[in-house]
């Protein structure tokens, strides 16, 4: 290489003695100012708009009717999740079995309950009596042991539980199957060479490892379920939303009562998100979490993500 003459900077200050000026992005400032302005306008609307009637919101926030609805929403969320997970585990194990009848059945179950919207299911289960007027338990070609009319069995609650739990079971089955399949075959082989039976291997080696994979999406699903329970208002089941609707149909304070419901949904989903973070962290056997860290991670959480993590499977 030829010598490149080094340009000696003539009257420049010493590079070590002064600080460089940071890169300036006008768009950061203009964009930021714009969004901030909109946020201020929105907050002003919340505070000053008289239709919001904050005093009414406050009056109903802890009213017995709303709290009873809140309780039903929570009960529906957890019962549908538990029922859905139990059915989902059975479906997942059927999916993984070598019996082609089990495989086909579980495939059809998942296909159907992932394909039909929960709202359609709720209405359908509620009207099951039109399709099957009577259910009975009988010895085939023999005497009937027990029978009842479908309409007496299908209450708004049981219809809601069926619809929500069956939908959940289809998603849970896929998560549980993926969790079990993610465990390296070497793990089961190592357990087999130690003389462990299949049941011991599943219980001691495979499920504990699969659980770490399954728990985060289940937490995510619980938060989704909380919001999906609001669908039961079509069955006139007084959950949180329907309780609010019943009140405003009497008092015409529509907006304040919707805000009451909104506040409670936000409170519950925030609590569930924090709980999910805590459990997830514990499963990674990390050090004890500080509240500050949980709150910080809240904004990176799946709370804002895709519903049910379908894209992740």
């Amino acid at each position: 290489m030829a010598d490149i003459p080094i340009k000696s900077p003539a009257r420049q200050p010493d590079i070590h003695s002064i600080k460089p000026v940071d890169v300036f992005h006008p768009s950061w400032w203009i964009g930021g100012a714009l969004v901030l302005g909109l946020a201020v306008l929105f907050i002003r609307l919340l505070v000053t708009n008289e239709n919001l009637q904050w005093s009414v919101v406050w009056q109903y926030l802890f009213s017995p009717e709303i709290l009873a609805g809140l309780g039903r929403t929570l009960m529906l969320t957890f019962l549908s999740m538990i029922l859905g997970l139990i059915i989902g585990t059975v479906i997942a194990v059927m999916r993984l079995s070598r019996n082609p009848v089990f495989q086909a059945t579980s495939w059809a179950w998942i296909w159907f309950f992932r394909g039909v919207p929960p709202l359609v299911q709720l209405v359908f289960w509620y009207n099951l009596g039109l399709l099957i007027p009577e259910v009975s338990i009988a010895i085939p070609f023999g005497p009937t042991l027990w029978s009842a009319s479908t309409n007496s069995l299908i209450t708004p609650l049981s219809a809601a539980l069926l619809g929500l739990a069956f939908t959940e079971s289809a998603y849970a089955a896929e998560m549980i199957r993926a969790g079990i399949q993610a465990i390296n075959l070497g793990q089961t082989e190592a357990a087999a060479t130690l003389g462990m039976t299949q049941a011991q291997t599943l219980r001691r080696i495979v499920l504990p490892q699969a659980l770490r994979i399954i728990v985060p999406p289940i937490g995510n699903d619980t938060i989704s379920m909380l919001k999906f329970t609001s669908l039961v208002s079509v069955l006139a089941l007084p959950d949180l939303l329907y309780s609010a609707q019943m009140i405003y149909s009497r008092t015409y304070q529509t907006i304040p009562l919707l805000i009451v419901a909104t506040i409670w949904y936000l409170v519950l989903s925030t609590i569930l998100t924090l709980a999910e973070h805590y459990i997830e962290h514990r499963l990674k056997d990390g050090p004890p979490l500080e509240l500050q860290l949980i709150l910080k991670s809240l904004f990176k959480s799946k709370f804002w993500g895709l519903r049910r993590g379908e894209a992740m499977l």
């Binding site: 390296n184 070497g186 793990q187 082989e189 190592a190 357990a191 087999a192 060479t193 130690l194 003389g195 462990m196 039976t197 080696i205 490892q209």
Partner: peptide
Amino acid sequence: SVQRQKMGMVFQGFHLF
């Protein structure tokens, strides 16, 4: 699994739990 108890096996990939 009763017979396998008598034959220990060590794998290339360890396969510890």
